[in-house]
C-alpha cells in the first residue's frame, strides 16, 4: 500500500483532510498535549502546575490500585473483544445468505446498541440482582449446580460479588455491542465482489474453502476495524462501571479509565490522572500495533 508521495497530491490530500484535522487538532491533539505536559506536574486544578518530573509515573508503578485496574482492564478487553467479535462475525456469516425475515433479524440484533444506556443499566441491574431473572432462569435450567461447582453461593448477587461483578459487566457489554459489529461485518461481507466467489466455485471450492480462502481474507479490513474499535472501547471502559458498580465491590470492577476519572475529579490529582491515562494509551497503542501486524494492514 505504501507508495511514493507526490507534492501536488500532498496538497490535495490536506485539502480533503483540513476540516477534520482542524477539529482533531483543537479538541483532541491540543488537550492531549496539555495532558502529556501535565503528567509531569503536580496539578490540583487550581494552583499552578508544579514540575515533578517522573514522580507521577514512579508513583503509579508502586500503587496497588493501578495494577489492579490494569489487570481488570486486560481481562475485560480480552474477553469482551474476542466474544463480541466471534459472535458478531458468526451472526453476520449466518445472515449473509437468502433468508426469510432478514430485515427483521437485522433490526432485532441492532436493538441493543440503540437502547438508551440508562435503560440498559437498570434492566441489567434487574437481571443481575439476587432475586432477579438470571438466577431464576439458571435455577429453572438446573444450571445453579454448575455455579455451586465453581464455589459460588446461589442465588448469585452478580454485581455484588467480587468474583462475578466484572463478568456481569462484560456480559452486558458483549450484549450491547455484538449486534452493532454484526452490522459492520455484514457491510463488509456485502462489499466482497461476487466474482471472487464465482471464480472459486468454478475451481470447485467447497463452502468451507470459500469461507477460509475468500470470505475471511477479504474481510480483513473489516476485522481489523472491528477488533481495533472493540479494543479501544474496552480498554477505556468507563460508563458501565460508573453507572453500575462504581468500581466495586472490593475493586473487582475498578478499570483504568475509571481510576483516571477518580483521580482527576474526586481526588483532585490531575497530573497523576494524566500519567495513568498516558500509560493506558501507550498500552492500547502497543496492542493495536501488534494487532495490525497480525491482521496485516
Amino acid at each position: 500500500m505504501v507508495r511514493k508521495s507526490v507534492p501536488g497530491e500532498t496538497l490535495a490530500a490536506y485539502t480533503f483532510l483540513a476540516p477534520f484535522l482542524a477539529l482533531l487538532g483543537i479538541f483532541a491533539l491540543w488537550p492531549l498535549g496539555q495532558a502529556f505536559w501535565l503528567s509531569f506536574h503536580a496539578f490540583d486544578l487550581f494552583s499552578p502546575p508544579r514540575w515533578i518530573g517522573l514522580a507521577n509515573y514512579r508513583r503509579l508503578l508502586t500503587q496497588g490500585d493501578f495494577w489492579i485496574s490494569i489487570k481488570n482492564t486486560f481481562v475485560y478487553t480480552g474477553v469482551v473483544v474476542s466474544a463480541q467479535t466471534a459472535l458478531a462475525l458468526g451472526l453476520a456469516l449466518l445472515m449473509d445468505q437468502q433468508l426469510r425475515g432478514k430485515t427483521f433479524f437485522r433490526v432485532a440484533f441492532f436493538l441493543p446498541s440503540v437502547t438508551s444506556s440508562v435503560a440498559i443499566a437498570l434492566i441489567f441491574t434487574f437481571l443481575f440482582v439476587k432475586t432477579g431473572f438470571l438466577n431464576a432462569a439458571l435455577a429453572w435450567l438446573h444450571l445453579d449446580v454448575v455455579l455451586r461447582g465453581f464455589g459460588l453461593q446461589t442465588p448469585v448477587d452478580w454485581l455484588g460479588n467480587p468474583r462475578t461483578a466484572l463478568w456481569a459487566i462484560m456480559a452486558q457489554n458483549v450484549w450491547s455491542t455484538a449486534g452493532f459489529f454484526m452490522i459492520v461485518f455484514l457491510a463488509g461481507l456485502q462489499a466482497i465482489p461476487e466474482t471472487l466467489f464465482e471464480a472459486a466455485r468454478v475451481d470447485g471450492a467447497s463452502r468451507r474453502q470459500l469461507l477460509w480462502h475468500v470470505t475471511l481474507p477479504q474481510l480483513r479490513p473489516t476485522l481489523f476495524f472491528v477488533v481495533t474499535m472493540g479494543m479501544i472501547g474496552c480498554f477505556q471502559v468507563f460508563d458501565q462501571v460508573y453507572v453500575m458498580t462504581d468500581g466495586g465491590p472490593l475493586k473487582a470492577t475498578l478499570t483504568t479509565a475509571y481510576l483516571v476519572y477518580k483521580e482527576a475529579f474526586v481526588n483532585f490529582n490531575m497530573g497523576y490522572a494524566c500519567a495513568i491515562a498516558f500509560v493506558l494509551a501507550t498500552i492500547i497503542f502497543a496492542c493495536t500495533m501488534v494487532q495490525k501486524r497480525l491482521l496485516g494492514e
Binding site: 441491574t125 440482582v129 432475586t131 432477579g132 448477587d157
Partner: peptide, 12 residues
C-alpha cells in the same frame, strides 16, 4: 440474621 442489605432482595 435479622438484617438484610438491599441487593439481597433485589433493591438498590
Amino acid at each position: 440474621g435479622c438484617a438484610v442489605y438491599p441487593s439481597e432482595v433485589g433493591s438498590s
